[in-house]
Every structure is written in structure tokens, then in C-alpha cells.
Design a protein around this nucleic acid. Structure first.
Lengths: 142, 142
DNA sequence: ATAAATGCAAAACCTTTGCACGCCT
DNA sequence: AGGCGTGCAAAGGTTTTGCATTTAT
């Protein structure tokens, strides 16, 4: 945990128990939780923490690029502590979101850069489909 | 316009002036307007149309794949009558959203398919950067 | 000591819903 | 005629904001 505290300090963010808890939770999870989900998952260990603090913390972490915000097409945002640029793949049946770390996008990026003359700074790539688990499930959720 | 009416009919959607107006507006614009923007742009020609109708119409069009819904990371959705799968590029300075029709993504898709064993059905690719116009502008908006 | 972060409640905002009326087919 | 679509207003849900109090440095 010392490491996370260090990373907060480097960004001139005060190290509070709430921030540590949120950042740590996001760093450890494989999911890509929403603010609400983060709030609920911490309510036993941090019963006094408010939802507003979760939002404010996520905003602070986002601004210094310690986390990234995702929008998969739902009514709320999700958050990811993996700030390396990587596509996400979403199962439209069970709504799980997976990281796709090993896709090389340099060709695509340079093509886009050439065609648009944009100065590229960021990207969000979402793929949608049915995960192997749900393909084999005759009664998938929703 | 006959063409648009035809496309609505084929999807078993009743052809109403409101739906035509919204679909036509979306088909002609280069922007990727939000529901609010669509509503405002039609308020002179269709003063009685309500925002709820705009939302309901967009939902209906989306469900039959006559339009697609985008989320660029803002607090609201944007809509695009170009339903061919294509990446979008967003200027983080002026907030314009441009279509990128000519990027070939077959390699990326097949790689993702192989790695995940997902049955792919859709995708949303957003790139962010500074557009050529804003690169030359010393006083860009926001 | 000082500035920043928290927690609470209220507000803001986008989007959805219910229902009566009207229009399309 | 019948059902679907519209418009209005109210509700719903997520996110933001203001402010007093507490906390980190």
C-alpha cells in the first residue's frame, strides 16, 4: 500500500484513508466498477465514507491520470486503474467488461494521425459481443 | 425524403412528421448531435414537438439500427445516422466529433476474436486529440 | 497553521415513464 | 376502428455542488 500512497503524493494529492481505499480497491479489482459499486464495496470497511467523496476522489484521480473513466454505453461511468491504453470488450449478455492488453494498435493510430492531422492524446476502444461463458449458457442473464 | 420514410416503414415504424424530421436531421448533419441539440434545431420547424418525443424516437431508431448511439465521455449521448462501423475522433479543445470511415479494422477484430473467443457483434472506437484548426488557434475554446 | 478533503443534504442534469389525447394505417 | 405515437408533467437515477467540519501536511 505504501506504493499507492506514494503515487498519490507524487501527484500532490493528500493521502487520506478514503482515497487510499478507493485507489487500492480499483487497483486490485478485475472488474471495472462504477462509483456506486465502489461505494458499496467499501461500506463495510469505511462505513462513514459518502458517495460524494467517492465521486470527488474519482474525479481527482482521473485528473492526474491515475485512473481512467470508461463509458461502455450504460447510464453510468466505470473506472479502471489500468491507465495503459487498452481496448475493452463487453459481454452484452452478462455485462462483464474485460481488458484487452495485448492488442497492438500502432498501425491504426498512425493511419488515423496521418488522415486527420489530429495531435492524438487518448483513445477509448470498446468491443461488444457474447463471451464464451454466455455462448454456452442457454439461460443467460438479461 | 421518400427514401427515409421507406426505411422507417421497412422497420415497421410508423412514419410520422416527428420521426421523419429527426431522422432526416440526423442523416444530413455532419455533427453528432445530442437529443437536446436535435430538439433545439427542430424547434422552429416543429414547435410542438417535445423532448420526450425526441428521446422516444431516438430509442426507436436505435433499436432497429437505423442510427447508432455514441458516448464520447460527456454527460449525454450523441447520435449518428451513419451505422456503418467506423471510429470517431473527438477534438478535446472544440469538442467536434468527426467520422473516420476509411480505417480498416479487420486485423484488429480478428485478433480480438481469436484472443477472447467472444462472438463479436459491435464496437465503438473513440480517439481523442487536438484538431488541426485548434492546433493553430492560440485561444481555443475551453 | 493553512489549505485541502470529507460528509451531508440539496440541487442539477439527462433520461425515462405514465397517461390522456390525437393521428397514422 | 384500433393501435401506435405524441406531448405534457412528473419521476428516476446519476453526478455535482455548497457549506460546515475535520484532517493532512
Amino acid at each position: 500500500m505504501k506504493e499507492l500512497a506514494q503515487r498519490l503524493k507524487e501527484k500532490n494529492l493528500k493521502v487520506t484513508p478514503q482515497r487510499l481505499a478507493i485507489f487500492q480497491m480499483l487497483s486490485k479489482t478485475e472488474e471495472h466498477p462504477s462509483a456506486e459499486t465502489i461505494y458499496k464495496s467499501l461500506e463495510t470497511t469505511h462505513p462513514t465514507m459518502s458517495l460524494a467523496t467517492v465521486y470527488k476522489t474519482l474525479d481527482a484521480l482521473k485528473k492526474v491520470h491515475l485512473i481512467q473513466e470508461l463509458n461502455v454505453g450504460e447510464d453510468c461511468f466505470r473506472y479502471d486503474a489500468n491507465t495503459n491504453s487498452h481496448p475493452h470488450i463487453v459481454c452484452i449478455s452478462c455485462h462483464e467488461v474485460y481488458d484487452m492488453d495485448s492488442i497492438d494498435l500502432d498501425d491504426v493510430r498512425s493511419k488515423i494521425q496521418k488522415e486527420t492531422n489530429f495531435q492524438l492524446v487518448d483513445e477509448r476502444l470498446y468491443f461488444y459481443g457474447i463471451c464464451p461463458k454466455c455462448q454456452n449458457n442457454k439461460y443467460p442473464p438479461a
